[in-house]
């Protein structure tokens, strides 16, 4: 896999990152070198090997289960927006999404 500037620009857009020119060049170089290293995985014969998405320890009850569905007060709406850069009326505020008709 050869990574080029257009690919970096594409994934930066997917990741909501706005990279400058110099940053874009550095990332292109670094990603190329890391992916070249990762290519060693191609040497392995993997047919019949299941993907492992999560650790499932053989000697413990599976922890992967939901807790009881009981309401619990963690914090108020006021507190929940306390860390927001912009808030009002217990809501998070963001720039206008739909522009008014002119």
């Amino acid at each position: 896999m050869k990574i080029d500037r257009a690919t970096v620009a594409h994934i930066a857009a997917l990741a909501n990152l706005e990279l400058g020119e110099a940053e874009m060049a550095a990332m292109e170089r670094d990603l190329a070198s890391i992916l070249e290293y990762v290519a060693q995985l191609d040497q392995l014969e993997l047919s019949g090997v299941e993907p492992m998405a999560q650790v499932a320890a053989p000697n413990a009850a599976p922890g992967d289960r939901a807790r009881d569905d009981r309401p619990r007060v963690w914090f108020t709406a006021e507190e929940a927006v306390a860390n927001a850069p912009q808030a009002g009326g217990g809501c998070f505020k963001v720039p206008r999404v739909i522009q008014p008709a002119s």
Partner: peptide, 9 residues
């Protein structure tokens, strides 16, 4: 209970 992946061991 707050971490569904925490084990029961």
């Amino acid at each position: 209970p707050l971490d569904a992946t925490s084990a029961d061991a």
